[in-house]
């Protein structure tokens, strides 16, 4: 092969290659819990990285050459200038352990954005219920941030958030800070309280919070519910939402599946005829019902 062709070939294949990630720099690392950190990423001057151009509910894939790749939801809503992205990551295995070794200023390769994201326009003027468990708070936090920033465009907002223990609750301070907010009601719960810990909120699973909430200021027909949490949570939460008569296509959830490509090719995230990475990861309950083994 002649050299010019190689150059052009390489150029084409680096620009359009969906399997190659782009560099970004870690601007800040926030310790959320003992096992969860939020990484704030910034663009490296003069470099274009499409991963900065996202909406809440979408995700990106971190690429660590020599270790592997892993998908993470954006945990912020993105600014208009696409200058920052955040990921809130739970250390659980090989890739996430390697990520936890990074320090501020380190360069990381990230590709994205992937997936459909939340239908942000259709949330306008609606009452909103957020139901999150554990690290599932990450993808919903971006939606919440956006909604709080423009709260006059939305109705009343309920946030139901559960964690294993008070020490395991991600964004705890942020959620506690919602207390003074006029249109927001935030209920927090933990599965249990270790002896050396204190907790003034509920104890129990997240679905218990449904009984403690008031619904007099929520109109089911114009309410959108958004769920993210551990896989077993969905069924029970949906049962509660159905009791409230929230239409099935207004119950949105974002799902986790094994993902090896993020672009609909590797097949790992297939659910019946759908792909969580490209058709999702946000699905509504009406569609989920007709898709086998989705929830």
């Amino acid at each position: 092969m002649n050299p010019e062709k190689t150059d052009q070939y390489m150029k084409d294949h680096f620009v359009d290659n969906p399997y190659l990630a782009h560099e970004t720099r870690i601007k800040k690392i926030i310790d959320e819990t003992a096992h969860v950190k939020t990484f704030v990423m910034e663009n490296i001057d003069g470099q274009y990285n499409p991963a900065f151009d996202f909406i809440p509910g979408q995700f990106a894939i971190w690429s660590l050459p020599g270790i592997g790749e892993a998908p993470f939801s954006y945990s912020c809503h993105g600014d208009s200038e696409n200058k920052e992205m955040q990921f809130t990551i739970h250390k659980i295995g090989s890739v996430t352990s390697a990520i936890f070794k990074y320090q501020v200023g380190d360069i990381v390769e990230i590709r994205g954005p992937y997936g459909n994201g939340f239908p942000m326009d259709s949330l306008i003027d609606k009452d909103l219920i957020f139901i999150m468990g554990g690290i599932g708070a990450a993808p919903l936090r971006g939606v919440l941030h956006h909604v709080l920033e423009f709260s006059e465009s939305y109705g009343n907002i309920c946030v139901l958030h559960g964690a294993k223990t008070p020490q395991d609750m991600v964004f705890k301070e942020e959620f506690l800070g919602l207390a003074g907010h006029e249109t927001v009601r935030c209920l927090l719960t933990v599965d249990n309280i270790p002896e050396d810990d204190s907790w003034e909120h509920s104890v129990g699973v997240v679905t218990d919070l449904f009984n403690q909430n008031r619904y007099d200021d929520i109109d089911p027909s114009k309410t959108i519910a958004m769920i993210c949490g551990p896989p077993i949570m969905y069924k029970f939460v949906i049962m509660e939402l159905e009791k409230l008569n929230i239409p099935q296509d207004q119950i949105l959830m974002t799902l986790e599946r094994r993902m090896k490509c993020g672009i609909g090719k590797c097949g790992h995230c297939a659910i019946d005829g759908e792909y969580a990475c490209t058709d999702g990861p946000v699905f509504n309950y009406w569609d989920a019902k007709s898709t086998k083994e989705m929830i």
């Binding site: 660590l64 050459p65 020599g66 270790i67 592997g68 790749e69 090896k260 490509c261 090719k265 590797c266 097949g267 790992h268």
Partner: peptide, 9 residues
């Protein structure tokens, strides 16, 4: 056409 991806040193 399903595939897995692995990094090899």
């Amino acid at each position: 056409s399903c595939y897995n991806v692995v990094d090899k040193l």
